[in-house]
Design a binder for these strands. Structure first.
Length: 485
RNA sequence: GGCGGGUUGGCGGAGAGGUUACGCAGCGGAUUGCAAAUCCGUGAAGACCGGUUCGAUUCCGGUACCCGCCUCCA
């Protein structure tokens, strides 16, 4: 069996992954707060842990992996959104979850096994808080329940901080009823304008951190294998989760391995609305970046390094996918000669991923399969990486290699582009005729004019002794092509 | 201020204590009416200063710079 190695944030070392139960490998990843479209920073952990999910399924079997990713649907940002729009909270969260699914589906991310909503686990949260209070790890005061940080001796171990250091450097405004400045909220009171539930501490709502502890416990148990999320969540969110869960379920150890993906920048700068470089995934999709291109850009950078989103990277990813599509499409019958769904990723690709998710190295291998025209390895690798081969072929394949040119009745193009594919051969014939004339007359102006127009329409013009190929490229513009017909 | 991380060729971006990463761009050649595409070939690196070592870009320490978290934002 392949040995998977993962960097554990808790130990800051790369460790051999040995599941608690290989028949039920369990992973929890912090999901979105659902009040708006996911931006491209939110999407990075989704792609990273989807890739890990796929690797685990590959190694341990699809049925042997349980992946839980929550929706935070109770939060002050959601309340604010509801207040300013006048819409019901549930309507906002339902709509946002729908968007999230659409956008992450476009990136080729599999749906996790469980996608719990925080509001469906209020009872479990209350039960956990009650236990923490009963055991002296938390206390109730003025309608709040607070976690007593000093009662968990390892508090700060994950993020490498000591409670004393943090207090010294803290800029936090400390609520007067806290025993200790670092104590954090498990439950807080709600007024008429905010959603709430009845609890032993009065009508109120949960603090942010308790939901993940409660849902992970309900769905995965007191101890499980992997807990993931963005590096920004390491402190305080994950630190607090550990404190809560370890105190509520002593001895269980909570997550064995903690994984954190680095943050994302855009064109070398932090993504922010004020800099005007803030994109949602939907923005990019609407700008015409296919989901596969976006995913490819993510996979190009190791998850523990800061990643920069740039238009140039997207261009290169698209170029690579076009080449891949040509290979996938080079034999119209290739899909029939072996089942694409069963193509296996070569060992070297699996091992690249097994080595702490070295997606960049995996893509290096993919490049070689493209160069060597190795369809089988290419299909297997792309599938394991979540880059759907059929989609790539349909989205990026060139017209010149479709059925029309080869006399076979296999069409692999998306319907919209197929319509144009029918017209390209006519243009090609005209081009060939013009070229033949030019060769004889030595007047190349007419053929050059047509060539220039085709290039302007984003069509690659390939001439050889054998004939002419017209291939739509990255900047393909159907409207300009229409004008030539 | 506290804590954590990073710094690789023109650009992006990996592995490995000693042997070509790879991709994009560049350059040379083949090919072409000219190109494009393709193929062949090729130059180019490891922030700085020390240390360990026969040997470090890879390990250790320091400096500089950058980034993140500590505070609503991922």
């Amino acid at each position: 069996m392949v040995t998977i190695r993962l960097t554990n944030s808790k130990t800051r070392r790369k460790e051999v992954f040995a599941p608690i139960n290989p028949a039920n490998v369990r992973m929890y990843v912090c999901g979105p707060t659902v009040y708006d479209r996911a931006h491209i920073g939110n999407a990075r952990p989704v792609v990273v842990f989807d890739t890990l999910f796929r690797l685990l399924r590959h190694v341990y079997g699809a049925e042997a992996v349980t992946y839980a990713r929550n929706f935070t649907d109770v939060d002050d940002k959601i309340n604010a959104r509801a207040a300013e729009s006048g819409r019901p909270i549930r309507e906002i969260t339902d709509e946002t979850i729908g968007w999230y699914h659409q956008d992450m589906d476009a990136l080729g991310a599999l749906r996790p096994t469980h996608e719990p909503r925080a509001t469906e686990y209020i009872g479990a949260m209350i039960a956990m808080i009650e236990k923490l209070i009963a055991d002296g790890h938390a206390y109730a005061v003025e309608g709040h329940a607070l976690f007593r940080v000093r009662s968990y001796k390892d508090y700060g171990a994950l993020s490498g901080r000591s409670v004393d250091d943090m207090i010294a450097g803290a800029r936090v405004e400390v609520a007067p009823f806290k025993e200790d400045p670092m104590d954090f909220v498990l439950w807080k009171p709600s007024g008429a304008a905010t959603p709430g539930w009845d609890s032993p501490w009065g009508y109120g709502r949960p603090g942010w951190h308790i939901e993940c502890s409660a849902m992970a416990y309900e769905l995965l148990g007191a101890s499980f294998d992997i807990h993931g999320g963005g590096l920004d969540l390491q402190f305080p969110h994950h630190e607090n989760e550990i404190a809560q869960s370890c105190c509520a379920h002593p001895g269980a150890g909570f997550a064995k391995i903690w994984m954190h993906n680095e943050m994302l920048q855009v064109e070398g700068r932090k993504m922010s609305k004020s800099l005007g470089n803030f994109f949602t995934v939907r923005d990019l999709l609407n700008q015409g970046y296919p989901g596969e291109v976006i995913r490819m850009v993510y996979l190009g950078t190791h998850y523990r390094k800061p990643m920069d989103w740039t238009a140039e990277k997207a261009r290169q990813a698209e170029m690579t996918l076009r080449k891949a599509a040509e290979v996938l499409n080079s034999d119209p019958f290739s899909e029939l000669s072996f089942s694409w769904a069963h193509a296996k990723a070569p060992t070297e690709v699996v091992e690249a991923l097994a080595n702490d998710l070295n997606t960049s190295l995996a893509l290096t291998h993919v490049n070689r399969y493209i160069k060597e025209n190795d369809i089988y390895s290419l299909v297997g690798s792309l599938s394991l990486l979540g880059l759907r081969p059929q989609v790539i072929r349909d989205e990026f394949a060139s017209f010149s290699l479709t059925a029309d040119d080869r006399g076979v009745s296999v069409s692999t193009r998306a319907a919209e582009t197929n319509a144009l594919a029918d017209r390209l051969p006519a243009l090609r014939e005209r081009f060939e005729a013009l070229r033949a004339e030019a060769m004889a007359s030595k007047d190349f102006a007419p053929v050059d004019a047509l060539k220039t127009a085709l290039i302007a329409a984003g069509v690659e013009v390939r001439m050889s002794k054998a004939g002419v190929e017209l291939v739509p490229g990255a900047g393909f513009d159907a409207a300009k092509l229409e004008a030539l017909l």
